[in-house]
């Protein structure tokens, strides 16, 4: 088949990016969305339930994208980097909201 330059390590890294990176991204997305909506005055549980509905679709898209995208580095950067950034932002937002 036309799987070019598929070193087993590259395949493993891609699978790890799809699962772990995708999870980190989803976690960050959900945290930021809940914190953001709470800041905007939405009831916490409503923000939580609404966000968690979307979160699994976000995970699905991230997962599919990890296999469709070309650059492995970019996948890791967007998913893990984005996840970490959004998680930190959610934390800051929460501290701000509770202070």
């Amino acid at each position: 088949m036309s799987i070019s330059a598929t070193h087993p390590l590259a395949v493993l890294s891609r699978i790890a990016a799809a699962l772990l990176g995708g999870y980190a991204f989803t976690f960050g997305f959900a945290a930021l969305a809940i914190a953001g909506l709470s800041t905007a005055g939405v009831d916490f549980h409503e923000a939580e339930h609404g966000t968690l509905l979307l979160a699994f679709l976000v995970f699905l898209l991230a997962f599919l994208w990890s296999f469709a995208a070309r650059s492995l580095a970019r996948i890791w950067l967007v998913l893990a980097g984005g996840g970490a950034t959004m998680t930190s932002a959610a934390w800051l937002l929460q501290s701000h909201l509770l202070s």
Binding site: I34, A35, S38, E48, L53, F56
Partner: peptide, 23 residues
Amino acid sequence: LVIFASIYLPLAETLLKPLHKQH
């Protein structure tokens, strides 16, 4: 996934616990 969302993404029990308690 949605039914067990609080197991898979335990935000209200981890990162956002302070916000959850206040609520």
